[in-house]
Write a protein that binds this DNA or RNA. Structure first.
Length: 480
DNA sequence: TTTTGAGTTGTTCGA
DNA sequence: GTCGAACAACTCAAA
C-alpha cells in the first residue's frame, strides 16, 4: 500500500503537542495525509502502569490535543489496547505507508517499540522514530572512553560544551489530514476518577495542555527566573516553574524551555543557569534510565541490597497520609495528595524522612509518588529516590540526613506552607509550628491544638532515628 | 597506567 | 550567633 495518497500515521505518546514535534513535522514534510493516533497501552509487559493522578492529567491533555487538532481540521483517534496489535491494525485499516513517533526510553517501551518496528518492516511499512523529549539522546553523550556518565556535573558540562539544542520548530504550517479511523471515546478510556471524584484539588491547581504549558513558561521566564536561585527552595512561594507535568507529557519540549530562557537573556544569570541545570537533571535521569534500565526497580549500588529496611506498613501509612507528626513532612504529603504535586525542596525532606527516619524502602516512596504525582516520570522519579537513599549514581552521601525541624525553619521560616496544608496548627507562632511537641500545654491550648487529637505526636524521634540510620549505613559499607 | 581532584540540595559540634 | 571541620570511603572522569 504505497500509493501517493497513502497516509502517514503519527503515533502520539508522551509528546502531546503540535509545536516542535519532530515526528509530526516529518510526517507533514512528506506531504502525505496524516492520521493522528494515541494508544492507551496498559498491557505491554513490564509497563509501569500509569498512576491515578497521571491518568487524570493524561485525560485532559488528550482532550486538549484533540481540540487543537480539530481546530486544524483533523481528528485524534484514541485506542486502547496492546500497541503491538493496535498500531499494525490501524496501518492495515488506513493503508498507511509509514508510522512516525517520538522515542521513549523506558525499557518496556523500547522493547515494545522495537517489536512494532519489526512487524511494520515485515509488511514494508516505514517506521521512523525521532527525538521529541530530550535535548540529547542518551547515547550521544559519553565520557572520553565512551562510557555513559554516572556523575551529573561532568555530564552537564559535556552537554553544555557541545550539544546546545537547536532552535525549536514551530507548529507545522499546514496539515493534510486523512480520514480518521474509528476510535474509542476519551471517556471510555476511563482515565478520570469516579467514586469518589478526588480530582477537585488537581483541577484547581492545573490546566493540562500545550497552551497552558506555554503560558506557564512565559510567566515563569518573565517574572521568576531571575530570582530562581534564591526562591526555588521556598515552598510557600511560587518560585519554581511548575512545568514538570507539562514536560513529562511532552506538552512542551525542553528545547523550547531552554530557548525561552535564552531569548530572555537570562541563560547566563544565576537564576537562569540554576534553572537550566534542573532541565539538565531531567536529561541526566534519562541518561541513567537508558543505560541502566533496571534503575526503577533495583539498587544502582548493589551493596544497598544488604540494607535492613525495618520500617513497618503502619509507618508507611502514616507517611502517605501525612500523619508523621513532623509538620513540614505532613504538609508536603498533604500538598501531594490534594494537588498531585509537591515542591521539590519538600520532596527531598519527605523522601529523606521515609528512608532515613522510618527505614522504609525507597521503592515504597517511589511507588507512592508514581501513583499520586501528576508529573510522575519513571526516569526522574527513580533517579531521585535512589539519589536520596544514597543507593544511586552520584547519590547523596549517607550522612546527609535532613532534619525535618531545621529544614522547616530554614525554608518555611514563617510557617506559611505548613499553615496552608495543616490548618489546625495555624495559630502556632514562630518556630513552634515546626515542632509542636516542644510547645508547652498552655501555648498549645491557646492555639487550639491538642496533640494526639488534632495533630499527631511524632511517630519517631528524629535524633534517635538519625543515629540509627548512621549505624545502619555503617553496616553496608563495602567490606575491605 | 597511575594519579588527582571532585562529587546538588545537610547536620552537628566545638571553638 | 557564626564559622569551619568532621562525618567515609569510594568512584568517577580526565589529565
Amino acid at each position: 500500500m504505497t500509493s501517493p495518497a497513502a497516509p502517514v500515521l503519527i503515533w502520539f505518546r508522551q509528546d502531546l503537542r503540535l509545536a516542535d514535534n519532530p515526528a509530526l513535522l516529518a510526517a507533514a514534510a512528506t506531504g502525505a495525509p496524516i492520521v493522528a493516533v494515541y494508544v492507551l497501552d496498559d498491557v505491554s509487559p513490564g509497563d509501569w502502569k500509569r498512576g491515578a493522578a497521571s491518568r487524570w492529567w493524561l485525560h485532559h491533555s488528550l482532550a486538549s490535543l484533540a481540540r487543537d487538532i480539530e481546530a486544524l481540521g483533523g481528528a485524534l483517534t484514541l485506542k486502547r489496547g496492546d500497541a503491538r496489535e493496535v498500531i499494525p491494525a490501524l496501518v492495515r485499516e488506513t493503508g498507511a505507508q509509514a508510522v512516525y513517533w517520538n522515542r521513549r526510553y523506558e525499557a518496556w517501551a523500547r522493547t515494545r517499540d522495537e517489536a512494532i518496528k519489526t512487524t511494520l518492516k515485515q509488511v514494508r511499512v516505514e517506521a521512523r522514530s525521532f527525538n521529541g523529549s530530550l535535548i540529547v539522546e542518551p547515547w550521544t553523550i559519553a565520557t572520553k572512553t565512551g562510557a555513559p556518565y554516572k556523575v551529573f556535573t561532568p555530564f552537564w558540562k559535556s552537554l553544555l560544551a557541545g550539544h546546545e539544542p537547536s532552535e525549536p520548530a514551530g507548529r507545522p504550517k499546514a496539515l493534510n489530514w486523512a480520514a480518521a479511523p474509528q476510535g474509542d471515546t476519551l471517556d471510555s478510556l476511563a482515565l478520570l476518577p469516579t467514586k469518589p471524584d478526588w480530582a477537585g484539588g488537581l483541577r484547581d491547581a492545573w490546566t493540562p495542555g500545550e497552551v497552558s504549558a506555554h503560558s506557564r513558561l512565559s510567566a515563569f521566564v518573565a517574572s521568576r527566573v531571575k530570582a530562581y536561585a534564591d526562591t526555588r527552595n521556598l515552598p510557600a512561594q511560587h518560585g519554581t516553574s511548575r512545568l514538570s507535568p507539562h514536560l513529562h507529557f511532552g506538552e512542551i519540549s525542553p528545547r523550547q524551555v531552554w530557548h525561552a530562557v535564552r531569548e530572555a537573556g537570562l541563560a547566563q544569570t544565576d537564576g537562569g543557569r540554576t534553572y537550566l541545570s534542573e532541565i539538565g537533571w531531567r536529561e541526566f535521569s534519562y541518561n541513567l534510565l537508558y543505560h541502566f534500565p533496571e534503575l526503577p526497580d533495583a539498587n544502582f549500588q548493589p551493596r544497598f541490597d544488604r540494607f535492613q529496611w525495618t520500617g513497618t506498613r503502619d509507618q508507611l501509612g502514616a507517611w502517605t497520609r501525612g500523619e508523621t507528626g513532623y509538620p513540614i513532612v505532613d504538609a508536603g504529603m498533604k500538598e501531594l495528595w490534594h494537588t498531585g504535586w509537591m515542591h521539590n525542596r519538600v520532596r527531598m525532606i519527605v523522601a529523606s524522612f521515609l528512608i532515613k527516619d522510618l527505614f522504609v524502602h525507597w521503592r515504597e516512596g517511589e511507588a507512592w509518588f508514581w501513583d499520586t504525582l501528576v508529573d510522575a516520570d519513571l526516569a526522574s522519579n527513580a533517579a531521585s529516590w535512589q539519589w536520596t537513599a544514597g543507593s544511586g549514581a552520584d547519590a547523596a552521601p549517607y550522612f546527609r540526613i535532613f532534619n525535618p525541624v531545621s529544614q522547616g525553619e530554614k525554608f518555611d521560616p514563617e510557617g506559611t506552607y505548613v499553615r496552608k496544608w495543616i490548618p489546625q496548627l495555624g495559630r502556632l507562632r514562630g518556630k513552634a509550628i515546626h515542632a509542636p511537641w516542644t510547645v508547652d500545654r498552655a501555648t498549645l491550648a491557646r492555639a487550639g491544638v491538642s496533640l494526639g487529637t488534632d495533630y499527631p505526636l511524632p511517630i519517631v524521634d528524629h535524633a534517635e532515628a538519625r543515629k540509627a540510620a548512621l549505624a545502619a549505613f555503617e553496616t553496608i559499607k563495602d567490606a575491605a
